[in-house]
Amino acid sequence: MKNTEKGIGKEAIRESRKLKLKIFMKNKLAVVGLVITILIVFLGVFADVICPEGPYVMDIAKRYIEPCGEYIFGTDKMGRDVFARIVYGIRISLLVGAVTTLVTFIFGMVLGMIAGYFKKVDNIIMRICEALMSIPPVLMAIALMSALEPSITSVIMSLCIVYTPQIARVARGATIAAKENTYIEAATAQGASSLRILLHHIAPNILSPVIVQGTYIFATAIILEASLSFLGAGIPAPAPSLGNILYEAKEGIFTANWLTIYPGIAMVLTVLGINILGDGLRDVLDPKSN
């Protein structure tokens, strides 16, 4: 990889990137996904600019106000602005999803590459991963939450333990496939160390499938966080997440349907955008899998 980048290969890599971008932009659905995701991320990142008063302002006199000019999505049982709660909820949900994806990506890559490259530890690592994957994700996550103090950090930790084995499995499979290539043989023959081969030759070549898997984990992590919060074992109140906003909506479902509808739409759009984006990325990065 390094040698080619220095020399003639540089041009080719740039060409291939351009081509990939072109394929991606041609896929109209993927572009829609990208636009939705950018919009949602924009809302999350600039939450305190969009709603400077924050998600916690209560006014009991203004309970259950229907959507109107002042409160476009209405207010909840404590008179809080639902729009503000959704925007900050998106911020927290995205934060949980992004940190989980990043951490599982790093740990999963490392574990998967070690398991795929060194046969001796393969069995140990994969058996542990299999055992962890045999517990249904929601069950595992709430069991983990029972062992931890309720906080955002705990939620992220639980989700990381749930999803790392999945990334590790994909990374391991890709490593085993990449190991068969002649350039690895060549590097070994030249006396390259295992570390060098893993970092410089294997890692760049297994990135595509792992990134694709990562986007799905981003989406499912947001759903799982929401499910946890919906069960009361996730992000603790009063901090808003899309899940616990909907959890609170349950109480007012007979009087205030806007408490369910708007946060629900926000939740679905967030996950849908990422899922479509993931499908688009898969078509570009990993065409064989479709």
Partner: peptide
């Protein structure tokens, strides 16, 4: 299928409660 994959089950539940129940 794509939209369906993006909807957590409790949102279906809540919407069904809203429509058929409420």
């Amino acid at each position: 299928a794509l939209v369906g994959l993006s909807v957590p089950c409790f949102i279906y539940g809540l919407l069904l409660i809203l429509y058929f129940g409420v």
